[in-house]
Amino acid sequence: MDVFMKGLSKAKEGVVAAAEKTKQGVAEAAGKTKEGVLYVGSKTKEGVVHGVATVAEKTKEQVTNVGGAVVTGVTAVAQKTVEGAGSIAAATGFVKKDQLGKNEEGAPQEGILEDMPVDPDNEAYEMPSEEGYQDYEPEA
């Protein structure tokens, strides 16, 4: 019985440690998101679009440190934060509304985080759909 109880105690310690790591990862992701939003706020009209992409990228980098179902929630929060940063930029006159959601080359930025393969159960990952990809044929 002692062996059984000791095993359960060790398992509990492992769960607590994993929860603490997840909590730490979420806190880091939130900190990076805040950094990115402050970065966007300090940019001029020309830099705002690039700044919004930076927020998304920093958040995406930190999301990889967070495991399990938390990833889905962090990704949703990050996307809403990026959308909010863009709205703030438009409201303050840093950028025109028609410039939001495009990178410096004018290509749409939507789907940055949505296409990231995420499995809350950590069982399997699927690649994003290939609808947006084109076949590449090298020139002879």
Rank of each mutant, 00 (worst) to 15 (best):
E104Q: 11
V63F: 04
V49D: 01
N65W: 11
A140D: 06
K45T: 11
P120S: 10
S87M: 15
L100D: 07
G101P: 03
Q134A: 08
V48M: 09
K97Y: 11
M127K: 12
E61M: 08
G86C: 14
H50N: 06
I88T: 04
A30E: 00
V63L: 12
K34V: 12
I88K: 05
G93H: 06
E123T: 09
G41C: 13
V118R: 06
L113I: 03
V82A: 11
D119V: 07
V16W: 13
E35I: 15
E20T: 07
I88F: 12
A19N: 01
V118Q: 02
K43A: 07
V26R: 00
P138Y: 07
T64W: 05
V26Q: 00
K97Q: 03
A91T: 09
E130P: 13
G14D: 02
I112P: 08
K58Q: 09
E46M: 14
Y125K: 09
P117Q: 12
G51E: 01
P138R: 09
Q24S: 05
G67L: 15
E131V: 06
Q62E: 06
S9A: 04
S129E: 09
Y133P: 14
E13P: 00
G84Q: 12
N122F: 13
Q24R: 13
V66I: 14
M5F: 01
A56T: 09
E57L: 05
T59I: 06
A69H: 05
P108I: 08
K58D: 01
A11C: 07
T81R: 04
V37H: 00
T44E: 00
A85W: 08
K23V: 05
E83F: 04
E137P: 05
G14W: 04
V55M: 15
A85D: 05
E137W: 05
E104R: 04
G47F: 15
A69Y: 08
A91V: 11
K10R: 13
S42H: 14
G93M: 02
S9L: 12
A124T: 07
T33E: 00
D115Y: 15
T92V: 06
A56S: 13
K80R: 09
F94A: 08
V71H: 03
G67T: 12
V70Q: 01
V77Y: 14
Q79C: 11
V71Q: 09
Q99N: 15
A91D: 08
V3K: 01
K6M: 04
L100M: 06
K23Y: 11
A11Y: 15
H50I: 02
V40C: 03
E13F: 04
Y136R: 15
K34W: 15
G36V: 14
V63G: 02
G67D: 01
D98V: 04
A124S: 11
T72L: 05
M116F: 07
G73A: 14
A76G: 08
H50R: 09
E104I: 05
G86N: 14
A30Y: 12
L38T: 06
T22I: 09
K60T: 06
A107N: 15
A90Q: 14
A124Y: 15
A27N: 10
T33V: 12
T81D: 02
K34Q: 01
T59E: 00
N65M: 05
A90G: 02
G84F: 14
A29G: 02
Q79K: 10
K6R: 04
E114A: 04
K45R: 07
T92D: 03
N122L: 03
E137C: 05
G36P: 01
T54S: 10
V52R: 01
V48F: 13
T59F: 15
E57C: 06
P108E: 08
A76M: 05
T92N: 12
E139S: 08
V77T: 03
P138N: 03
T92M: 03
G7S: 09
L8S: 00
T72A: 08
G68K: 09
A56D: 01
T64P: 05
P120R: 09
V95H: 14
V37T: 01
D135I: 15
G41Y: 15
G86F: 09
V37E: 00
G132M: 13
G86R: 15
V82F: 07
E57V: 08
E46V: 12
A76L: 09
T75Q: 13
Q99G: 13
E13W: 03
N122S: 08
V26N: 00
V77Q: 02
V118K: 11
E130K: 10
E114G: 12
K43S: 04
P117D: 12
A69N: 11
A11S: 02
V16D: 01
D115G: 12
S129L: 03
A53M: 03
A27P: 00
K102S: 00
M5L: 00
V74R: 01
D121M: 08
V74Y: 05
V16N: 06
K23M: 12
V49F: 07
E131D: 15
G67W: 09
E83Y: 14
S9C: 08
G25I: 09
D2H: 08
K43D: 00
A30D: 00
T72H: 09
A18K: 04
F4S: 00
T44M: 14
M1I: 00
E35C: 04
D98R: 05
Q99I: 12
K80W: 13
Y39H: 05
K58S: 07
M5E: 00
E61G: 09
G36H: 15
E28S: 11
D121R: 03
K34N: 01
T64N: 12
D135F: 10
A27D: 01
E123M: 12
V82I: 05
K45P: 02
E13D: 12
V48G: 01
A124H: 07
K60F: 04
V74K: 02
L100K: 02
Y125T: 09
M5V: 08
V55S: 01
E20F: 11
M127T: 04
V40T: 01
E110Q: 04
P108K: 07
K60S: 07
E137G: 06
E28Y: 08
T22C: 14
K32L: 13
K10W: 08
L8I: 03
A69K: 06
E123I: 03
M1D: 00
G31M: 13
V74M: 15
M116G: 04
V49P: 02
A29S: 02
K97S: 08
Y136I: 12
V63Q: 01
A53S: 10
V52Q: 01
E123W: 10
A85R: 09
E139A: 15
A11R: 00
V82K: 12
V49L: 15
A17Q: 07
V52E: 00
K43W: 11
G47V: 14
P138T: 07
G51R: 10
E20Q: 05
M127G: 03
